[in-house]
Amino acid sequence: MRPTRARSLRTTARTALATLSVLGLGTGLLAAAAPADASATGYAALGDSYSSGVGSGSYISSSGDCEQSTLAYPYLWQAANHPSSFDFAACSGATTSDVLSSQLSGLNSSIGLVSISIGGNDAGFASTMETCVLDGTSACLSAVSTAESFTNTQLAGKLDSVYAAIHADAPNAHVVVLGYPHLYQVPGDCLFGISDTSRNAINGAADDLDGVIANEAAKAGFAFADVRSAFNGHEICSDDSWLHSTTLPIDESYHPTSTGQADGYLPAFTADAG
């Protein structure tokens, strides 16, 4: 991750909200109490490569290593709905820490809609997939177990900090948190590659990840858009995959294709965008 966005300076409100969350008061009540503002009509797209559009091509040259695509669901949504402003801050490789440090400067009271996918990189998605592809089933299962342990013990607090910061900086926004699909159809049509045991384990890790994300989004009063059903039948090893398997350029591996963005992520986001 090489962030291109300026660091947000509004840390006082974020710290207060995060403290309330830690004390058990949660952010859901705060979000629910925020007054509606009809003038809040801007849209901000935050998150990682699944939101920037890695794998879909048509990258915006000025986005550099963030690899933002005009075929990513945020760009497609804004082109169809014409929000009063569009802040495309999602960036390839982003973690929760990167969102806090580099993606929030465009948020303000005029933002009425925020989308975000985040958490996969915190859990070590890329390194886990590298291990599974290169080092065999036993190493894969160990790597997946490590990722699941992080997801189930440490990710919730990191998500809570991000969600509190979004609410602090965009108090009038409706926030849609998007999850991650299963990567593999099991059994499927793939004759080569990793074992079905590894594929099932990777899908199980996605379920753990989505479960934690959905739970923390609900606590924050945010909508959760589950894309797993949209990608059902379109995973890697299916006859109509909307996801790249191992491919070149390598960073597009295990990411949605342009069809996955348009027919998977976009409808899921639109259904919750209001």
Rank of each mutant, 00 (worst) to 15 (best):
P3I: 04
R5P: 00
A13D: 13
R14E: 12
L20E: 10
S21D: 15
L23S: 12
L25R: 15
L30W: 10
A31R: 10
A32K: 15
P35E: 11
S39A: 15
T41F: 09
G42N: 07
L46D: 05
S51F: 03
V54I: 07
G55P: 00
G57S: 01
S58Q: 08
S61Y: 02
S61K: 04
S63K: 01
A72P: 00
A72V: 04
P74H: 06
P83G: 03
S85Q: 09
S85K: 09
A90W: 08
S92T: 00
G93Q: 03
T95E: 11
S102M: 05
Q103V: 09
S105C: 00
N108F: 00
G120Q: 05
G124Y: 12
S127W: 14
E130D: 15
S138Q: 08
S149G: 10
S149L: 13
T153E: 08
G157F: 07
G157S: 10
K158N: 08
L159D: 06
I166Q: 02
P171G: 06
N172W: 05
L178N: 04
H182Q: 11
P187D: 01
C190S: 01
A205F: 14
A206I: 14
A206Q: 11
L209F: 07
L209I: 05
G211M: 12
I213H: 03
A214S: 14
G221Q: 01
G221P: 01
F222W: 08
A223R: 11
F224L: 05
A225P: 01
R228E: 12
C237P: 00
D240A: 13
S241T: 10
W242I: 07
L243V: 10
T246K: 10
Y254H: 03
T257D: 01
T257A: 02
S258M: 02
A262Q: 12
D263Y: 11
G264D: 09
L266E: 07
L266Y: 05
A273N: 07
